[in-house]
Each structure stands twice: as C-alpha cells, then as structure tokens.
C-alpha cells in the first residue's frame, strides 16, 4: 500500500496502515465480500478529523506506546468514534514507522475510524528499505487549509510510562500509581508491539537478568521476519537465558485464541492493545496494557514495575 490509498481489512486494527499515510479502517466480513464484489467501500461517510499535535522529546523508557495509551485515556474509549485522528508535531515527525504503527494501531481504541500520520521522508524510507517498493511514491498530505473538528495537544517530555488498567483501554494511569501489582504472566508481541525495536527494548531490560519466580514471560514476534532478525541480533538468546518462552510469530494470546491462556484470578501485563474482560480468554483474569519496556521490567520484578528504576 501507499500514502493516500484507502485500505480496508476485516480486523479493527487495520488502522495500523495509517502509519504510512493511508486512510485505513476495519470492516466486517460481509462488508469485505461487498468490497470484493463492487470494488468500493459502501458503508462509510467521510469522517470529521481530530488533529493531534504531539510535541516534546520522550524521556528514557517512554515511547509511542505510552503516547497512545495516554491519548486514549485522555480522549476516552469512544472519544473519537466516527472520527479520524491525524497526528502532527515534531514528535511524530521524529518517530520511526514502527512507533507510528503502534500509535495508529491503537487509534481505534479511542473509537477512531482511522489514525493517520501524514506521509514524509520516513514513510518513503520505510517503503523503500523495509517494504522493497521501487515505483514512485507520492506523498499525500493534508491540504494547508484542511478543517479540523478540534485540536488536541500532547507534550510527551514529562510523560511517565502509561498503563491501561482492567477492563477498559481508556482506564489509563501512570506507572507510579499502579506499580507493585503482582503479575503472573507477561506477554510481549502482537501487531501493536511485536516489531524488532519492541523486542530490542524488552531484551535490553531482561539481558543478564532472570524472570521472577511465579511469573511467566512469553514473547511473540510480530512476524517470521521479525523472529529471524531477533535471532540474528541475539534477542531470542537474551529472552531464553532470562527464562522467557519465545513462541511462534503471530497474534498468540492477545485475543485468547491460542497459547498463553490465563488461569482464574491471574494478572497479565501485556504489550497488546485490548484489556476487555475475557479478552485473553479467561473472564476471571485481569489484563494491564503497557510498553515493551514496562512489560520486560515487570517480568523481572514479578510485579508491575517502572523500567526507569532498573532492578
């Protein structure tokens, strides 16, 4: 896909593609059959757009996942329903495509139809170097006089690691308010945070340390390619020496369809994107969402832990 394209998928997190400047949204299976038949997306109006202006430099161990969790908490879970979130500001311009993917992926957790980062030189770099695109790339960007329904500003320079607490994604608190919660299982991976820089951040935290007794740590690379790269870079060895289990690439326990099922009254800390009751398969469990750095620090500590404090 390319900037400016309209992309649909039968997955609510199809919004991820907005990281490359596309208007991209999830639809149901029947609607996809209709799109295949007619070649158009029938059931969508042009949504109003909320401009999100992000400024400041992330503190150490704070990053795109903390930004989007903070934003979902601020907007609420339906705050952007039937709207597009369009991301601007120096922080977005400096952000890697991987970070933008995490932000656009979870834009749907504020109800947004789509999350879009206007295409720029980083988009071109990603499409050329990572995706192997060789044809001309047109940078489709907002009109200078584009109209926004409202503007939301976020300064990340003083942002703490953010945690979405059970059982809604907008129940977001800074780590300082929830550190110390006993953790039975840590999950690192998924479409939100299973890319190589996510695994790098987690590996850096657990390297030379051990996963706490009574805590399981599962790592699901987002793809076979990420898995291979994590092997080449030694991250898989870092995880395994720490006592983590590295699973096959894919969705894994995020939505409770395979592997990593939680026991009754267990608590999971996960880099995935949803924590609804029963999301990971067991309605008697609790899920906290966070960044890879927080997840890895929590695995070592056995409790929800602040990666800035070391251990």
């Amino acid at each position: 896909m390319r900037p400016g394209q309209v992309v649909v998928g039968t997955d609510s997190h199809t919004t991820s593609h907005g990281a490359l400047g596309a208007f991209s949204f999830g639809i149901g299976a029947t609607e996809m059959a209709s799109v295949w038949t007619l070649g158009v997306a029938l059931n969508v109006e042009v949504p109003p757009t909320i401009k999100v202006e992000v400024t400041g430099e992330f503190p150490p161990h704070v990053g795109p996942k903390d930004l989007i969790l903070h934003l979902v908490g601020k907007l609420t879970a339906q705050g952007a329903n039937f709207r597009v979130l369009e991301y601007h500001g120096e922080t977005m311009r400096r952000m890697s495509t991987s970070g933008r993917l995490a932000v656009c992926n979870m834009s749907v957790e504020a109800g947004a139809t789509s999350g879009i980062v206007p295409a720029d030189e980083e988009t071109v770099r990603y499409l050329r170097e990572e995706a192997g695109v060789t044809d001309p790339i047109e940078l489709v960007v907002p009109d200078p006089d584009a109209v926004y329904e409202r503007v939301v500003t976020v300064d990340v320079s003083a942002l703490e690691p953010q945690i979405a607490c059970p059982h809604t994604v907008d129940n977001v608190k800074p780590i300082s308010e929830v550190a110390g919660v006993k953790v039975h299982q840590v999950v690192i991976g998924s479409c939100t945070n299973g890319r190589i820089d996510d695994l790098e951040a987690a590996a850096a935290v657990v390297r030379g340390k051990k996963v706490a007794k009574g805590t399981r740590m599962l790592v699901f690379p987002a793809s076979g390619r990420v898995f291979q790269e994590a092997l080449d870079r030694g991250y898989v060895a870092d995880f395994m020496k720490a006592g983590a289990v590295v699973m096959n690439a894919g969705c894994g326990p995020c939505l409770g369809v395979h592997e990593g099922a939680l026991g009754d009254n267990e608590v999971a800390v996960s880099t995935t994107n949803r924590n609804f009751k029963g999301r990971m398969g067991n309605p008697k469990s609790e899920v906290y969402l966070c960044s890879p750095a927080v997840a890895a620090a929590s695995a070592v500590a056995g409790v929800l832990a602040d990666p800035r404090k070391g251990s």
Partner: peptide, 12 residues
Amino acid sequence: DDVSTDVIYPGR
C-alpha cells in the same frame, strides 16, 4: 457501558 465484542462473542 463499553460492552466489548470480546464480551458479546468471546474469541474462543
């Protein structure tokens, strides 16, 4: 409020 599709139709 916020009754999710995971609650309406569990993933399993």
